[in-house]
Each structure stands twice: as C-alpha cells, then as structure tokens.
Write a protein that binds this DNA or RNA. Structure first.
Lengths: 331, 331
DNA sequence: CTGTTAGCGCCTTCAC
DNA sequence: GTGAAGGCGCTAACAG
C-alpha cells in the first residue's frame, strides 16, 4: 500500500496525495476531504523511510550519555524528550560508558544518516573523544571547550556556595571528595576559594580527588577518613552518590550527622530527599539543561550557519538535614 | 558522495560496490581490495536511508516504558541495549507515562516504518492499550495476557517469599502496601497466601492498596499508619520507592527499624543498598529480563511465524538491615 | 489548484 | 565475477 494506491483510488496524482499528507495549503478543500476519506478507507499509512531518503534526513537526534542507570542523566533526557515531542524529531538514547569506540560508532551512524545530529551529555574532555566537527552537535553538562554550542552550570561557583554554606553552619575542617573530571576540578576550585576567603585551613589531607565517582568510592573514602588522623567536621562531595556512601559509613561508625560531621552532595538526585538523613546538595536545573540542549541542536539543524552559543544556567543550594539538622519532607 | 562516485572512480559498477560493502562473497579478492581502497580514499560513507527504503526496514526497535526516571527500568533498558549492540539493530527509548495517546503515537510510528518492532515494559493491562496485533511486539514485566511473547517473574511467589521472610523474623502483624496494577494484585495474593499458611491475621486494616505507587505515596501511607490504631510490626511494600517513603516517616517518628517495625520493598533498585537502613527487597533479574525480551523480539523479526512464548525468570530475596538488623555493605 | 516527471541512494534480480 | 536496469515510496521542481 503506497501513495500510488491512494492516487489511483481517488483519481488524483501522487503529488496531490503527498500535498494532502503534508498539509500543503494549495489543495482545494474538497480534494483534501476526498483524499483523506480514501486514506482512511484504505487504511493507508505513509512510509517515512521514503520521505527520509528523499529529504536526506532522518528526523532523529542521538542523545549520548555515559549511562542511563543514573537518575541525574535520566531527568535531563526526559526534558530533551519532552521538548522533542513538540517537533517531529525523535530522540535516540545511546549509552557510551565513556568508551571511545562507542562514541565513534554513534558518530559514524550519523554519518550514515541514521540521525541528523547529537547531544552529548557529560562527554568528558574533548581530546578524549573522536573528532565530530563534521556533525551537528551540542554539549550538555561539560565545561571543556568544544567546537559547538554548550550548556552547563557554573560549577566553580556552585561548589563555592555549597562550601560557604558549610562554613556558615560553623564548620571549620571541611573535606573535599571528588574525581578526575573537568567539573570536579572546577568544583575543587570553588571549594578552595570559599575556604581561602575566610582564612580556613586548606591542606592536602583534606582533599581526596582520585578515582572517586560513585557510591562505592564514597564508602572507601569515608573509611579512609575514619582511619586517618584528619577529623573533618564536614564533607563536600562532588556527587550525591559519593555522599550516600560517606553517610553510610559515618552512620555505622556512630557519628552524628550533621552534629559530628555534616555532609553535602552535588546534583540533587531524586533520592537526595528520600535519604536518611536527607541530603543537602546543589541542584542542577536538569530539566532546563535538557530543554536548552534540545533547543540549541534544533536551531542548529534548522540553520546550520547559526553561531555557537555557551549557555550557563542557574544552580541552587538545597539545604537539608545532612547539614542543617532539620528534616523537612517538603523539600 | 554516493555509491556512484565509488563506481566511477574504480570503473566497477554500482552493483559491485554494493556487494563489497555488504560483504557479498561473489566478488574477486582483488576487486574487493581496489574498491575498499577507493572507499577509504574518497571517505565514502554509505547512506543507510537508501538501504532502509530498499529493504523495507529501519533496523530500529522501540522500547516503550512508563518513565525513564526510574532506575528499575533503566537497568532493563541497559541490558536490552547491550544485547542489541551485538546485532545491527538500534533501540529507541520511548516514554509513555502510561498515556494511551503516547502509546498510539509510537505504535503508529512503527506502522510508518520508523521501527520494525517494539518491546513494551510494564505496559499495564492489555485492554487499556491501543491495539497492536499488527506489529511485532514483546511484553516485559507484565503478566496480563497479550497476543505476543512475554517475559516476567512470578510476582505471586516473590511476594510470598518476602512475607514469609518477615514471618521468619518473628513478625506477626504485617501490612501490605500496593497499588492498582496487575503485578501489585499478584503480590497481594502472595502476601495473603503466606499469612494464611501460618494462620496469621489478615484483615483490611492491614492492607493499603489504593493509589500507592511511589515515594510520596509511601510517605502518606506511613502517616496514615501512625495515626491509626493498627500497629504493624512489619510492612511489605510492592515497590522500593514506597518503602523509602515509609522508612522516612517511621524514622522521624522515632520507630526503630527493624526492631519496632521491619520494612521490605520490591525491585532491588540500585539505591536500595545505599539507603539508611539498607532495604530488604525482592530482586528482579532486570538484566535477564531485558536480554530475554530482546532475544524474543529479535527472533520474531527474523521469523515472523515464530510461536508466542511466555518466559518466567527467577527472582531472589535480598535480605538487608531493614528486616534483619544487620548492615552489610557488600550486598 | 493539479499533474508529470525526475530523482533521493541503495539493493537485487537477471543477464552474461 | 561483474554489469545493466528497475524500483523501494516519497517529495519537489516545473508546467499547466
């Protein structure tokens, strides 16, 4: 069943049928009705593969992210999807596991026209990626320099806010736990600036910034802290999951949170408020990050000449029990 | 740049080029080399839209799920993806939010040839869905009857195991918290069977099964419990997120978990072990569920005549602090 | 307002 | 082992 069959049945040409399907205004109302009736009648459904070939585009955008099993990303994806649904573009989620070859595979698929462009979420350093200068792209949640539009928060100042909050609650020996990735480095900068500003101690014993990314790493880091002579009265972790690990260990060791040691995370995962105690953290505006990323790639596709933009969105400190000692389910 | 250009450059015909690209054996070794060299040389990349049109398939499978912002689903998707990468099929994740019209949209997209088939994850009751008898489909994590292959766990017996475990730890007044969906109904059956078997009380005061799906509902349910005269010594919730809400409220009320009241969830979300206290729950074999679902749809596409299968996979009870009082980071 | 026609890029018979 | 030719289903000039 093709457009031909509809043409035959209605005695119009395929061109007219095509016009009706695509809402072209230069079709008589009556014709339109007849054609639609025939389409209904025959149960005809256009084959978009034909259209895609003809128009040299797939109306698909790839969304590349490290892993879908991370609620931080999933919220971003959700908003990209929400935005895309308003257009006729579909998104395709692709997990990279930060693997060079997977990035390459997906980028090559675009060269094969299976997608029109990509959104890269937290891709890491640009020099560790395959070159993608030839394909329409937007980077989300990464502050390294790319040859395309980007959207992110100000990581340095977000960390500054978080650490400053810890200082405000009277904490003086504040640890930093992070990993080896760009935004973590920036967060460390913010941490250092906050301490420096009020003349607080900043030494290497207070900093763990190697191989620390997730829950298990948080467990390890916290154990190391307990075993050492460093007795911090607060911990700032660059990811909520790390903070969850830290809390687990501190709890088991009988430390009171936040009285003995306060804990602050980063990202405001869905679980941050469910946690016991609920976790103070930096909220990244995930919905806006995703929506903005989509808008950027969309306008890039509409107008390939459009200029590269860098968009910085507002973060927000969410104060919860793990630093304030006040449990409030509403937040 | 098309296959034509390669043909011209090599003085072979487009047919030969096509054969080389597709690994057709009836091509002389020498020819193959020359053609590949030219392809390399020109930087030619095949346009798969042409191939798709010609072969009347897109090599895409849609994966429909309620929401991506739920780590239960994301693990399943991850395994589907992992399985798909071995083939030349790509998967496309589609959020339905359990909305009839969104289901319809995606199913229509398949009729438009944008995908070759679908995997439906937790689609709910079959009568609430648009008809999809005309498209290749597989249902995952749903026990309602569908006119296609299915993969799921035995929900009734999983719930039985969970409640039985609570009984073993000496609990006698066990509440059930669930919602109005098929697997929840089955879990209630298992709950009732376990209680009945040992002659424990089962009355309506111990059952909350309306509008209870997520964290917020858990909060509400727990508050209701505290206000009522029912003083349960254990709670079995049909989802981990509900359990998290319950724990939050009980904790705040000063109840000791599991001494005063034990809590058991369902699903074994990644976060269940990070929680304080860590959560006893039923592990669904999410990776296997996804992998099996993909295999089923794949064979359906390979062989449209293949028979409908129902696959039931093994669940497992994961015992943690919220029922045992023992914190073990390893689990 | 409508029809004719020529491809989009590829694969696949059918010849030789 | 290779080539010629037709067509997958659709859209977009161009003509009328």
């Amino acid at each position: 069943m093709t457009i031909q069959d509809v043409a035959k049945k209605t005695n119009y040409s395929v061109a007219t049928i095509s016009r009706v399907i695509n809402g072209d205004p230069r079709v008589a109302q009556k014709t339109r009705e007849k054609v639609n009736a025939a389409i209904e009648d025959l149960g005809y459904v256009p084959n978009l593969l034909g259209r895609n070939l003809r128009q040299v585009k797939s109306n698909v955008i790839y969304v590349l992210l490290p892993s879908i099993d991370n609620s931080f990303y999933s919220k971003i994806v959700q908003s990209i999807e929400k935005e895309s649904i308003k257009t006729k573009i579909s998104i395709m989620i692709c997990e990279t596991y930060n693997d060079f070859n997977r990035y390459k595979t997906f980028m090559d698929a675009i060269r094969k026209r299976l997608a029109d462009g990509i959104i890269l979420i937290s891709p890491g350093k640009s020099e560790l990626l395959p070159n993608f200068d030839d394909i329409p792209a937007v980077v989300c949640c990464e502050t390294d320099s790319f040859n395309c539009s980007q959207v992110d928060i100000d990581n340095e100042s977000a960390a500054y806010d978080a650490v400053n909050h810890l200082i405000q609650t009277g904490k003086k020996k504040i640890m930093f736990i992070g990993g080896d990735f760009t935004s973590s480095h920036l967060r460390k900068k913010g941490y250092l600036r906050a301490l420096k500003e009020v003349g607080l101690e900043t030494n290497q014993d207070l900093i763990i910034d190697k191989d620390c990314y997730g829950y298990e790493d948080g467990l390890k880091a916290a154990k190391k802290i307990l075993e050492s002579q460093t007795k911090p009265d607060a911990v700032f972790a660059v990811a909520d999951q790390i903070a969850f690990g830290v809390i687990k260990v501190f709890n088991k060791a009988g430390l009171k949170i936040p009285q003995d040691v306060a804990v602050c995370g980063f990202d405001n995962l869905t679980y941050a408020k469910m946690h016991n105690p609920s976790l103070t953290t930096i909220m990244q505006p995930r919905m806006e990050l995703g929506a903005e990323a989509f808008k950027l790639i969309y306008s890039k596709l509409k107008n390939p000449q459009s200029k590269i933009k860098k968009v910085i969105l507002e973060h927000k400190l969410i104060k919860r029990y793990s630093t304030t000692g006040i449990e409030n389910e509403e937040i």
